[in-house]
C-alpha cells in the first residue's frame, strides 16, 4: 500500500494506529482531489484505481477456484472489479465518515466487487439447485444425518416448521441460501432482487423458526 498522497506521511506499519491527524489529512486530501475537476481529479481517480486493482487481485487470488474455469485472466477480472468499485465508490463519497482510513474504506468496495464477480462466475452455468418440488425431499432427508437425539429432534421440528410456518417465498429463500448454499448475491440476481432484501427475508424466516423451537435453540 503506497502512500497515495505525497505530502502526507503514514504511521509506521499499522494503518489503524496511524496518527489520527494524518489519517484525517490523508482522507481530506483524497476527498478534495476526487471532488475537484480536471487533471487533479483524473490523477486521484487513477491512483485510487491502482489501489483498487491491487485489492481486487488480492481477493480474486483468494477465490481462484471460483473463476479460473471461466477462461478469463486475473488481470482482466481485477480491472473489471476495480472499475465497478471505483464508480460505486465515487457515487458514495458522501458516505465516508472519517471513521476509518480512506484507503480501508475504498478497499471494501474492491473486495465486494471482486467477491461478487467470482461468486457469479462460479454459478454462471448452474441452475439454482433446488426447485419447489425438491423442498419437501430436502426437508425430509436432511435430519437423517447422524446426530444426537436432541439435535435430531430439533432439526425435525425446524424442518417441519419450514414447511408449515413459512411463506412460499421465505421457504424458497431459506432453502436456496441455507440448504443449497447458493451465495446471496447470486440468488439476488436470479430472483431480481437485492442482497439486503433477501437477507431480510431470511432473517424473518429464521425468527419464525426460532420461535417454533423456542429458547433451547438460542445458543
Amino acid at each position: 500500500m503506497s502512500n497515495p498522497v505525497g505530502s502526507v506521511k503514514r504511521g509506521p506499519h499499522d494503518p489503524t494506529r496511524a496518527h489520527p491527524g494524518s489519517r484525517q489529512a490523508e482522507a481530506e486530501a483524497w476527498l478534495q482531489s476526487l471532488r475537484s475537476g480536471g487533471r487533479e481529479r483524473e490523477d486521484a481517480a487513477a491512483r485510487l484505481d491502482g489501489l483498487l486493482v491491487k485489492a481486487a487481485r488480492f481477493e480474486l487470488l483468494r477465490r481462484r477456484a471460483q473463476w479460473n474455469r471461466s477462461g478469463e485472466s486475473l488481470d482482466d477480472l481485477a480491472v473489471q472489479s476495480a472499475d465497478s468499485a471505483l464508480s460505486a465508490l465515487l457515487s458514495k463519497l458522501d458516505h465516508y465518515r472519517f471513521e476509518s482510513r480512506f484507503t480501508t474504506w475504498a478497499y471494501k468496495f474492491a473486495i465486494l466487487e471482486a467477491a461478487q464477480l467470482a461468486r457469479r462466475r462460479a454459478w454462471q452455468e448452474r441452475e439454482l439447485p433446488i426447485g419447489p418440488e425438491e423442498w419437501d425431499r430436502l426437508a425430509e432427508s436432511t435430519p437423517e444425518l447422524a446426530a444426537g437425539v436432541a439435535v435430531r429432534d430439533q432439526l425435525r421440528r425446524v424442518m417441519r416448521a419450514i414447511q408449515t410456518q413459512l411463506s412460499a417465498h421465505q421457504r424458497e429463500v431459506l432453502t436456496e441460501l441455507v440448504l443449497a448454499e447458493v451465495p446471496i448475491d447470486v440468488l439476488a440476481e436470479r430472483l431480481n432482487t437485492t442482497r439486503g432484501a433477501l437477507y431480510k427475508t431470511l432473517h424473518d424466516a429464521r425468527r419464525k423458526l426460532r420461535d417454533v423451537v423456542g429458547s433451547e435453540a438460542d445458543d
Binding site: 471494501k108 444425518l145 446426530a147 439435535v151 432473517h203
Partner: peptide
C-alpha cells in the same frame, strides 16, 4: 453438513443483527 451446524445456519443468530447494507456501510470501521 454436521447437524449442529446445519441447525445453527437454519436458525441464524439470535438477537439483533445488522442487515447486509448496514454491514457493508460499517465494515471498514
Amino acid at each position: 453438513q454436521t447437524p449442529d451446524h446445519l441447525l445453527r445456519r437454519l436458525l441464524g443468530p439470535a438477537g439483533p443483527e445488522l442487515g447486509c447494507e448496514e454491514c457493508f456501510e460499517l465494515l471498514d470501521v
